[in-house]
């Protein structure tokens, strides 16, 4: 049998990468898919918030003293004009939640992105070089992970003052260690594989080995962790803002919206519950998606919401 006989059309022989296989599994996971849709809708709404505000004429800071405040000076419940009701100053809560989503999602994604880069690099360095580098870096990781973090955040913000940038940095500084720990562990085992030795025998540089040979093989757990760290960052941001350490009014964020609402839960149920539910929906969707991605990447893990439920 000669090689020419084996030839088949090129379209059929393009390999399916492990990513494509994982994607195939993820596509059949209804819970993960629904979560992804929720996230896409939220992101779209957040991105389009100014358009929506322009369309219904309710700017995020516009106070509607005639229609948005009852004669007693209280917020107005949800209705045709104000879908989520109004807040204590007669502003459209729906619009404010959308604008809050912009800040909260942005902080979550940017902080997690920064943390991922730092975490991957530090984890790779610690795992790849081992020795003293590893001892120092892993101790650092341990210490950061066990920090009384909120207290340190309070201390740091009290020095630099609350701002968007400070919030992002505080969250990124908190999140990188979890990624670094996982990357380090994976690197330790992957660097012993023969293909790394093969690359070394070819004369590949350390950087090439770390980023071309090792990194793609540990991306899977990192991606899972990142999808789980984004909701954690959103939770952290809202907590900081709730305490007055993060995003400060008048810029709306989910945390400071809830902080304002706390004094009004006896008279305006929507003021507290609707932003809270939006926040929960978002973090829950990210967490469910993260679980789904983990299942798709590592099919051995047990599925919680199995499609093969009938199997006893």
């Amino acid at each position: 049998m000669t090689i020419t006989e084996l030839r088949v059309p090129a379209a059929q022989v393009t390999g399916r990468s492990p990513w494509q296989l994982a994607w195939g599994r993820l596509r059949t996971d209804r819970v993960a898919l629904a979560s992804a849709i929720v996230i896409v809708v939220l992101v779209t709404l957040a991105v389009c918030a100014p358009l929506i505000a322009a369309w219904n004429g309710h700017g995020p800071d516009d106070q509607f003293r005639d229609t948005g405040i009852t004669p007693e000076g209280l917020p107005v419940p949800p209705g045709g004009e104000f879908w989520f009701g109004t807040d204590r100053l007669g502003r459209d809560l729906f619009i404010r939640v959308l604008f809050g989503a912009r800040v909260s999602l942005l902080v979550g994604v940017v902080a997690t992105g920064m943390a991922s880069i730092v975490g991957v690099v530090i984890g790779l360095l610690a795992g790849f070089y081992g020795g003293v580098v590893d001892v120092i870096l892993s101790r650092l990781i341990d210490v950061v992970l066990s920090f009384p973090y909120l207290i340190f955040a309070i201390a740091a913000v009290s020095i630099v003052g609350p701002s968007l940038a400070a919030t992002v940095f505080v969250i990124a500084f908190y999140s990188w260690a979890a990624i670094a720990r996982i990357v380090r562990g994976q690197t330790l085992s992957i660097k012993e594989r023969e293909y790394v030795e093969a690359a070394r025998s070819l004369g590949a540089s350390d950087g090439r080995i770390m980023f071309i040979d090792i990194l793609p093989n540990l991306l899977a757990p990192v991606i899972v962790l990142v999808t789980l760290l984004i909701p954690a960052a959103i939770v952290f941001e809202s907590t900081l803002s709730y305490l007055g350490l993060g995003i400060t009014p008048p810029t709306p964020s989910w945390g400071n919206l809830l902080s304002e609402a706390q004094g009004f839960y006896r008279v305006a149920w929507w003021y507290l519950t609707l932003p809270a539910l939006t926040l929960l929906l978002t973090t829950l969707a990210f967490n469910l998606l993260g679980d789904g991605i983990r299942d798709a990447i590592d099919p051995r893990t047990e599925r919680i919401f199995s499609r093969r439920r009938k199997k006893k």
Partner: peptide, 13 residues
Amino acid sequence: FQDPYGSLNPRRR
């Protein structure tokens, strides 16, 4: 190398 499974990076074409 000895191990035809271990000596090729599974994530690369």
